[in-house]
Amino acid sequence: MGPVKAVVMGASWGGLNAYTQVLAALPASFPAAILLVQHQHASSENRLPWLLGRYCDLPVIAPEDKEPILPGHVYVAPPGYHMLVDQDETIAFSVGKQVHFSRPSVDELFFSAGVVYGDRLAAVILTGANDDGAAGIEYIHRRGGFTIAQSPVSSEAPTMPEAAIKTGAVSRVLDLEKIGPYLAERLQGS
C-alpha cells in the first residue's frame, strides 16, 4: 500500500460533533486531503466549513467545481450537491437524484474517490441514522483502501456505522475519540 493521498468521511445524525472531534485531533502537518459529506437539507446555509474551521488546524474549504484537491486541506460537500472526485484529482459536483434520500450522499463521494485513489485512500464512516456509505465502504475496501467505522456504542446514531460494519469491509472499528489520533499517527508514518 502506497502513501494515503486522501481520506473520505461520511456522517449524518450527530455528524457535526463527530467531525469536530476527529478534525481537532489532526495536526497542521497532516499529509492527506480530507473530503467529507455531512447530510443536510438542500436549503441550509453552508455554514459547516466555517464551523469546522474553528476547531481544526487545517484549512477547511467550501469547494468550487473543478477545484484541485490539495494535501492537508479539508473539503466539505455543499448542501444540495453530490461531491465527487474526478480523474485528475479535482472536485466535481452533481445535482443528480438523491441517494439514500440525501444530496450530498456519502456513497457518491466514496465510489468516485475509490475509483481515483484505489489503495491510497482511507475512508471513515461516522455516526448517522441511515445506511448511506455502506456500499461505498465496501467498494473502497475492494479497491484496496483502508476503512474505519466509528464504534456504534460511541455513535449518537449507530445505524450508519452498523450498516458499514455489516458489509464485512471495515478494517478498524474505533471509538470516536480514537479516530482522529489514529488517522494522525497512521498517516504521518505513511
Binding site: L84, Q87, A92, G96, S112, V116
Partner: peptide, 11 residues
C-alpha cells in the same frame, strides 16, 4: 463530460 459523474451514472 466530467468522468466522475458520467461514470457514476453509467454504473
Amino acid at each position: 463530460y466530467s468522468k466522475a459523474s458520467i461514470r457514476r451514472r453509467i454504473m
